[in-house]
Design a protein around this nucleic acid. Structure first.
Lengths: 210, 210
DNA sequence: TTTAATATTGAATGAATATTCAATAAATAA
DNA sequence: TTATTTATTGAATATTCATTCAATATTAAA
């Protein structure tokens, strides 16, 4: 019971910080503003996070956790099927129904820290590796794909997804966005079909093996 | 002559700001620090950039210009050849010899602004579209590829490159970095070979056409 | 040379920054 | 109950922040 209130308060503070970052940008968030937003004095914020770096680390933990939380089930839901349906898989990987639940601005603001903070870099990496493993595990459940290099395939798929969202974030018009999105989806289809093809016809005709 | 000194001073200020951002992170750069770094009073900095937003816009202009400046020639150097050598092309696209000339930390710190500033978003997009056009133009010089969809191919290649650097920035060990890099290079090879294949065998066997 | 525009300086502003501290309130342990 | 730990408050700190202003120096135009 003793630690309960502490943990909850910390969560509350980080959540508040996240909301503020969404609205006003991480660079404009201060301890005083967080306190004001939550109706508590800044000294209480600092009681739980003795300096600002700890606050940022807390925020990043929160973001990465949330990122994983919305990403993984999208993949996991497909686990029951005996064969991977490429169309369904791609649809889900690119869904971002959760666009409303997740703020790319805050995500990338925090991402920029990996270049100055080793431990943040590790955290980011861990998450990205985890997601790849999750996808690999899913691919391994497919009776055909399992005999190929699913780890490699997962890497190739994710690099397209991540590159796609990096690029798509710059799009303004819905029409253009959708058009590009379609394009990148096709690119992932091709990866899957090429791998299936490679497996079924012995060694493939181009270097896809790695 | 009148505007010369003004332009040079502005350049000098932005360059100083960039150096500081590299060293200490964009979030830790202030007008006073820029002035101190360049041996001028903060009021002079503000004489040329009347508010901080203009400074940031200046920095972003600088970064994007530099980005383009090191990227484009990498592609353009290949323009003389009558056929695109995929191996050479990929080698160059992923070279990043310029890692020393360009700071990804500052780049991504600025990238994060696209989510809060429409005009910055446009600038970023323009650059990325330009690079794709440059690559498309290069691909168009290849006698085989020219009869395919070079625009589409350029998009597909760049999404891998950009996703790759996003992901590779999280790598610490040189060994792992190189291994992943190799993987993504292969992924781009495959795109090129698949397109050549598709062209030469009429309509391809899977959906690569888009 | 005189005039006008620009460049540069240095001091001053109030607001916001992260952080500290002592005091009190509440909860838990003895 | 008392003692001890934790939660919470509010005031105070020095520092840094972006920005302003008036004064001077330098340069270009008349």
């Amino acid at each position: 019971m003793k630690n309960t209130i502490r943990k909850e308060r910390k969560k509350e503070i980080i959540s508040g910080m996240y909301e503020l970052s969404r609205r006003e940008g991480l660079e404009n968030v201060s301890i005083a503003k967080i306190g004001k937003h939550l109706g508590m004095p800044p000294s209480l914020v600092m009681h739980y996070f003795p300096n600002k770096r700890l606050l940022i680390l807390g925020l990043i933990d929160h973001i990465l956790h949330q990122y994983q939380l919305i990403y993984k089930p999208i993949i996991s839901k497909l686990e029951n099927n005996p064969r991977v349906d490429p169309e369904l898989l791609v649809e889900r990987l690119f869904s971002r129904e959760w666009n409303l639940l997740f703020d790319d601005g805050v995500f990338f603001s925090c991402y920029a820290f990996i270049f100055r903070d080793q431990s943040i870099k590790k955290e980011y990496k861990n998450l990205h590796v985890k997601l790849r493993v999750t996808l690999k595990n899913l691919l391994d459940k497919d009776e055909v794909l399992v005999s190929g290099d699913t780890g490699l395939l997962a890497e190739k798929i994710f690099v397209v997804i991540e590159g796609a969202y990096y690029y798509l974030s710059m799009m303004d018009e819905a029409r253009e966005y959708d058009q590009k999105l379609e394009l990148f989806k096709n690119q992932v289809y091709d990866l899957i079909y090429a791998e299936i093809n490679r497996i079924q016809s012995g060694k493939g005709m181009y270097s896809s093996g790695g």
